[in-house]
Structure formats: C-alpha cells, structure tokens
Write a protein that binds this DNA or RNA. Structure first.
Lengths: 233, 233
DNA sequence: TGACCCGATTGATAATTATCAATCAAAAGT
DNA sequence: ACTTTTGATTGATAATTATCAATCGGGTCA
C-alpha cells in the first residue's frame, strides 16, 4: 500500500478512534488485495467474513432478486462497506463488484469485533458510523419515494457538482447504466432524463456533464436538505 | 405505566443490556405521555431531543418534501424510534404521528448518550440495534427497487400472516392508505393490487385480509429471504 | 487504420403507476 | 337510528417508467 493511501485509511473517522497499537493489530491481520475491474468481491447471502476498505478504485454495491438487479451504492476511496453485516455476524444483504482496477483492504470480521470490545472509542466511532449509514439510507429511501426519476437525477447532479469543487463540471464516477440503477431507473430512462434536463442547462457528453446555470437547475430539482445534504460533523 | 408495559420496556434488547441502576436512572429522567390519535409527535427538521419508546398504540414515521408525503415505517409496542438522530445529535429526517391512542416514553437524548458512555453493554446493544435498523432499511430499499407494487404487497401480506400467528388471517395494523404509502404506492393502486391478488386467493374485507392458499400466493410473491426475513437472533 | 465491441441513445410501444372524479361503504358523532 | 364524515373502491384517463429493437458513436485492439 502506498504511504499516502495508508495515511488516508488511518485518517478515516472510524480508525482515528483507535490507538496506534490497536490500529496496527488490525492492519497486521488485514489483507491488501488488488483486483481488476468487474470482479465480484462479495455475493449476497455469504457469511460476513471481512470488513472491506476501498483504498483505490471503485466498488459497486448491488443487489439481485429473481433475475432483477439494482445498484445500492458506490464506494470510492477511502470508504468502507459491510460494517453492519460484520458486526451482526450475519449474511450480507448486498453484493459487491469492482468497477475499476481497485485496491482493497480486507479486515477479518472477528478482529473488528474484538477491537470493538477492547477499545471503547472504537465502539463509539462504530455507533456514529452506523447511525450515519442508516440516516443516509433513509435519505435514499425518501428520494425514491418522493421524487420522479428526473428529479432524482437533477439532485444527484447538484450534489456531485458541489462535491467535485463547484466548477459547473461533473465527471461521472461510473458508467451511465450504473448511475441509472443507482438512481432507480433504466439506462434508457436516464438518457431521457438527461435530455429533459437540457431545458435547465444540463449538457452531457460522454462521462462529462456540464451545468450552465446552477440556479435554473436548482429551481427544477428543488433540493431538500433532509434528503440531499450529508449529516454535518 | 402498567406493570406489564414497564416489564416489556425493560425486556427490550436495548434495555436488557443495562444494569438495574442505570435503567432506573434513565426511567427517572423519562416522561411517560399519552396521546390521542393523529397527533404529530415529531416534525422532521427538529433537533433530536428525545429517544421515543412506543409503549402502547401505533406510531407512523413519515416524511414530506415539497408537498408530497410518504410513510417510512410503522412502530408498534414495544418499539423505539429516532435512535440514530439522538446519537448523532442531529435533526430528525422523519416525522412521527400517532395513528391510535398511544402511550410513549420519552427519554432525554442527553441521558441516552450519557448512559451509552457509562455502560459498555448498552453501547454494544446500541451497535446491534443500529446495525439491525440499517439492514432493515436496506431490505426496504431492495423491495422498492426490485419489485412491482403488487409483489411488494404480496410479500408484505405473507410476512404479516406469519407474524400474526399463521392463521391465514391478517388484521391490518393501519388504514389502507397508510399501508399504501408504506409500500410505496397510492391508495388507489393498493386497492387494485388487492384486486389482482384475488387471483391468488387473497380476499380483503375492511381491515381483515384472508389468504386462502399460502403456497399459491407465495408462488406469485416469490419471497426472498434477503428482503423479507428479519435478521436472526 | 479499420473492424469490432460495448455502452449510449433514440424511437416505438407496452406496462405500470398516478391522478382525477364519482360513488360506495363503513365508522363516528349527535 | 340517523346524519355526517371519512376512507375505500371503481372507472376513465394521463403521466411515468419499462421494454424491445435499431442505430449511433466512442474506445479498443489487431
């Protein structure tokens, strides 16, 4: 692992709560692995063996049922996934696949649970992490139930624009069909949603999206802090 | 509070983790209140002041955005809500209203956080509770994204039937329009979904639903353990 | 460079779901 | 018991979203 990546992992809210020694113990037990794009890392229904940390690349969390598939979330560096399943020692509800060449840190579930028992600040950080994840999922649920697909896309674009520096340009983090599934629609529908947003100054060319007039798009999107904003702190 | 209700609260997984003294301290600081039906207990966007425990009655968690409204969850005795917002000391993402004459225990947020700091088993129980809530919300999200409305209803019915004792009869826990919102559809659409399920042996009369042939309904519903089953333990 | 492949887009159509309006039925209050 | 109210149902229609098929276009690779 590159030094800066290791530092980024250490700097995760979750791991900042750990003392140096406890952190080192976790890392000693962990496996650093590289994967090409398109590798299924986890299949739902498997037992939770490892907490996963995305050090580099992109991981798609997805779920299937009776032949249908949807994207739940995208995990980018430095982010973790499968914490809830690891803690409850249960099967995964989601599958995971790499979307790009990726580097992952796999921490044995048992070690995570042991560290939690031994280090109170770590357990406290886990509480905060889980509460955040829960609230973030509730926001997703609200977006799905209260908005049309074009509105979901518009608000996703506004948030991505802000997170990517506010230049009015967005680089999509994945293929459009994955974004479509993430937002709860078909690829065709996403294409048409983009087309309809051109009336509000949205132009999409390949993986680059340009927003010419933020306030015009915002008027249409009607962003709601209780759906679109991340929790503070 | 009736003696048996008090015992039921004490018996919640979350509170079983507390010692008698710590539990008593929480209860001393808590308020027991009765509410008629239709009272809004919490409005989203308010600061999280109390952890709420439903001792009696029914509470609907709902969310609104720009004039639209949907139901997120129903809380029945003995259940709690708003834990994540309380722990993160953030605003609520959901509103809450009573659907029936209800009795609630309001525990000051600050006391909950203090108890968590002082009692390790309580914090551990909170971790498990949050992980469960998160996973349960992921299940909901999958159901919404992977199923049609009739399928969601069919699977909801199968689960309700099992939880209510497996008699083939279900008593709806709320008005149909609330169930409709819970399942992510309009009341009219729910009516039609019920009508279409009559082909699989579902008869609905008022708040009673009868399923004449579980396996036939199950064939249509295609229940998926990773969506419909509660976490074990 | 050119053939090929895969994802994106577009068009046509179908399925699903929502909306609006009009009863209908059942529960609540007088 | 009788209004009165409110929620449920049904019908007609519209909007939204999905599906299927065809084409387009950018990127890859020999």
């Amino acid at each position: 692992m590159r030094v800066e990546d290791a530092a980024a992992v250490r700097d995760l809210t979750l791991f900042r709560s750990l003392g140096d020694e406890a952190f080192a113990q976790l890392m000693d037990a962990a496996y650093l692995q590289r994967f090409p794009p398109g590798v299924v890392l986890i299949s739902e229904n498997e037992r939770a063996d490892f907490l996963h940390v995305v050090v580099e690349g992109t991981v798609e969390m997805f779920a299937t049922s009776h032949g249908r598939e949807t994207t739940i979330e995208l995990i980018r560096p430095v982010g973790l996934f499968l914490l809830a399943a690891v803690l409850k020692d249960q099967i995964y509800l989601q599958s995971a696949r790499t979307l790009a060449k990726s580097q992952l840190l796999l921490i044995p579930a048992e070690k995570v649970r042991m560290a939690m028992e031994r280090e109170l600040p770590f357990m406290r950080a886990i509480v905060m992490e889980l509460a955040s994840d829960y609230r973030s999922t509730i926001r997703d649920l609200k977006s799905l139930k209260l908005r049309t697909s074009a509105e979901r896309l518009a608000n996703w674009l506004l948030r991505a624009e802000a997170e990517q520096g506010g230049s009015g340009q967005i680089e999509l983090p994945c293929e459009k069909r994955t974004l479509a599934a993430r937002l709860g629609m078909t690829p065709e529908n996403l294409s048409r949603a983009f087309a309809s947003l051109s009336a509000y100054g949205v132009q999409s060319k390949g993986s680059i999206v340009a927003i010419s007039d933020l306030s015009r798009l915002s008027d249409f999107a009607a962003p709601d802090p209780l759906i679109d904003e991340r929790d503070p702190s």
